[in-house]
Amino acid sequence: MSTPTTTTRPGAESAPGYRPGRTLPLRVEALRQWKRRRTLVMGGILIALPFVLVIAFAIGGEDGDRNGRITLMDTATASGANFAATCLFVSAGFLLVIPVALFCGDTVASEASWSSLRYLLAAPVPRSRLLASKLTVALGYSAAAMVLLPLVALAVGTVAYGWGPLQLPTGGSVPAGDALFRVAVAVAFVFASQLVTAGLAFWLSTRTDAPLGAVGGAVGLTIVGNVLDAVTALGDWREYLPAHWQFAWIDALQPQLEWGGMVKGTAISLTYAVVLFALAFRGFARKDIVS
């Protein structure tokens, strides 16, 4: 099957008014992704989680003693800020991986599975432009998912438990105004730590015509990273695993905000992500598009 030509060289003949940089605008791609059912379902799940946790705390009452240790779960009902931090804690390890893998892994592979990818390229949308638009929108929706959960949790927690300082598990508290900054730092780091999953999902999305394969592959490899981080025999090698730093944002909830772990985790995650995004663009530029 012949493949549509998608490369436009400077000076080459083209239709009057055609500008490669104006094809597939971000607003068009964002609107297309917004109308997808999986976007609405994922948003609904993230909005529902804080309500589910409020009901769970109301039914379960106070947690039992953990050998005298106070954890973030024990302070969940202290204030709206504490509840938002708790929601982030229970979801950062797995739940927030799903929207990132979904938005980044489904974006190109779904077009191929619908046999619409070749028609987009025949529009003609340059391949690099198509990937850049889809990646930008996918990361935008991923970031929105990261912000949506703690934002809803903060509102729900404030209504349920009141507005007040952030009670720290280690003792002491942080004023409410500063607590918002601490939670924002934690959310930003969680997003940065998920860039590896985004890179895996996006690279796989350019290599397969099966969206489920790209999404599932990214989630599966993320889980493998978590398993390897649990192998203490690896010693210092674990520090090169993005999973090793995924909960470094807890340092934002200390009496004195600590940046060291979050900076290292962000650097590791960003390095892997850049390599994976580069592989996606390089491979897609040479790929024979037949679907």
Rank of each mutant, 00 (worst) to 15 (best):
G172F: 03
V190T: 12
Y141M: 08
A153D: 00
L148I: 12
G157Y: 03
K134W: 00
K134R: 10
A179F: 00
P169E: 13
V159W: 05
L195N: 08
S142T: 11
A160D: 05
A153N: 00
L139I: 02
L149Y: 09
T208V: 13
P165M: 08
A144W: 01
L135N: 02
A186G: 15
T158H: 11
A153W: 00
A201T: 02
M146T: 05
A143I: 02
A132T: 04
D209I: 03
G162I: 00
L139M: 09
W163L: 06
S193K: 09
W203V: 12
A155Q: 01
A179S: 10
K134C: 08
L151W: 04
V137M: 05
Y161Q: 03
L149M: 06
A160G: 11
S205K: 08
A155Y: 01
R182F: 02
T170M: 14
F189I: 02
Q194C: 09
R182G: 04
S173H: 05
V187L: 04
V152P: 01
A143L: 12
T208G: 12
S193I: 07
V159Y: 13
W203D: 14
V196I: 08
T158A: 11
G164Q: 04
T136K: 09
G172A: 02
V156P: 06
L135S: 02
S133T: 03
Y141N: 05
F181E: 11
G171P: 08
V196L: 15
D209R: 09
A198Y: 11
L204E: 09
L130S: 12
V187M: 05
L180K: 14
K134S: 05
A184R: 03
D178F: 06
G164I: 00
L200T: 09
D209Y: 01
V137Q: 13
A201P: 03
A132C: 13
F191G: 13
P165S: 07
V174H: 10
A143N: 01
G140Y: 11
A138H: 06
A188D: 03
T197A: 15
S173G: 12
T136A: 14
S193T: 07
Q167Y: 12
A176Y: 04
V187P: 04
A186R: 06
L154Y: 00
V185A: 15
Y161W: 06
T206V: 08
L180W: 10
T197M: 11
W203C: 15
S142M: 06
V147K: 13
S142E: 10
L204C: 06
A186C: 05
Y141G: 07
L154W: 02
T136Y: 07
W203G: 14
F189C: 05
Y161A: 05
Q194N: 07
F191A: 13
A188L: 09
S133A: 10
P150C: 11
S133V: 01
F189D: 02
V137G: 14
T170I: 12
L200I: 06
G199I: 06
G199L: 08
V137I: 15
V174C: 10
G177M: 15
A144Q: 05
T136D: 09
A132F: 10
A160N: 11
L204K: 08
G164F: 04
G172L: 09
A179I: 03
T206W: 09
F202S: 12
L151E: 12
